[in-house]
């Protein structure tokens, strides 16, 4: 009995925080937009009994999903989001791995401090940090001033309101999500494995590629998913740092919801986004599972 209760807890969690909201969104995505409160129809009228339920289901259809295929905007936005999420994940990995590696190599007494430094930005509002980047990246911003001062450039370059700024923003914001899981695997890495690799004929560099990297694979995968999944639906960073040409599905979703007031279409966009995410999420779960088995 107690076992049953314990098992029920995560399922209940999943049910209330994922499944029920998802079903609500799915239901709205099958509805039609209307100028009313709430702004879609039909709504479930339980007072009308069985006929009410029947009418409710009769009013649902996949029209909105069909609509998404009629305008190139949507698939272009999905593709562009996938591209931005993918590239920024790779960049976050390239930036984050050396940080995690450095932390894992640091003397024991330094590690809590370094860990704190990685987490520290979370103590400030995300919005404020993104705004700070606006100051850094703007035409008169610190970055341009620095580049001018070093002589790398001789006229300010436009960084803010370009895709570059979006990449910088995503890499910056999600960096801890990449660093921490990689650090966790690197920290566990047995130093003697590297010595063994060297002993068996590896140079330092090849020991890194043949031993350190494969053994931190689970951390790399976890970090990549933790970055990729939220980056795909990212809205705030492209809105604030990106230019108007930055096409991301999060922005399209916003426009459907707020500008067009079309909750059903917005919900359909969200449902498709979720379906796109389900593939990496399942892969992520399988990675975790494999990891647990390997450790068990």
């Amino acid at each position: 009995m107690r076992r049953l209760v314990l098992i029920a807890v995560p399922y209940l969690w999943l049910l209330t925080l994922f499944l029920i909201p998802f079903l609500i969104v799915l239901k709205i995505s099958l509805s039609d937009t209307a100028l009313s409160i709430p702004p879609y129809t039909p709504t479930l009228d339980l007072g009308a009994g069985w006929t009410g339920v029947k009418e409710f289901f009769a009013g649902l259809d996949f029209e909105n999903f069909w609509f998404l295929t009629t305008d190139e905007l949507y698939w272009k936005a999905y593709l562009s989001s996938l591209q931005i999420a993918f590239l920024s994940t790779i960049m976050t990995l390239i930036v984050g791995y050396p940080i995690a590696y450095g932390m894992a190599q640091a003397p024991d007494e330094w590690r809590p401090t370094l860990m704190l430094l990685v987490i520290l930005p979370f103590w400030t509002s995300f919005l404020i940090r993104v705004y700070a980047w606006m100051g850094i990246l703007s035409r008169e911003g610190l970055l341009n001033q620095f580049l001018l001062w070093t002589g790398v450039i001789d006229a300010p370059v436009k960084i803010l309101n370009t895709d570059t700024a979006v990449y910088i923003g995503i890499v910056y914001t999600y960096l801890p999500f990449m660093v921490l899981p990689i650090y966790a695997t690197l920290e566990k890495l047995d130093e003697s494995l590297l010595e063994a690799a060297e002993d068996l004929g590896c140079s330092r560099a090849s020991a890194f590629w043949l031993v350190t990297v494969p053994l931190s694979k689970s951390g790399i995968i976890a970090g990549c998913f933790l970055v990729f999944i939220p980056a795909l639906g990212e809205f705030v960073i492209p809105s604030l740092l990106g230019g108007s040409q930055t096409l991301m599905i999060g922005k399209v979703l916003w426009e459907e919801f707020f500008n067009n007031r079309d909750w059903p279409i917005a919900s359909a966009v969200a449902v498709v986004l979720l379906l796109i995410l389900i593939v990496p999420i399942i892969l992520f779960q399988r990675n975790e599972q494999k990891q647990r088995e390997a450790e068990g």
Binding site: D190, E195, K217
Partner: peptide
């Protein structure tokens, strides 16, 4: 002579087998 160039091999106390 660096370790990877020595005609010496070592069996580690922890065995240091590559888990992957």
């Amino acid at each position: 002579v660096p370790p990877n160039k020595r005609a010496v091999n070592m069996m580690f106390q922890s065995y240091a087998l590559f888990p992957h």
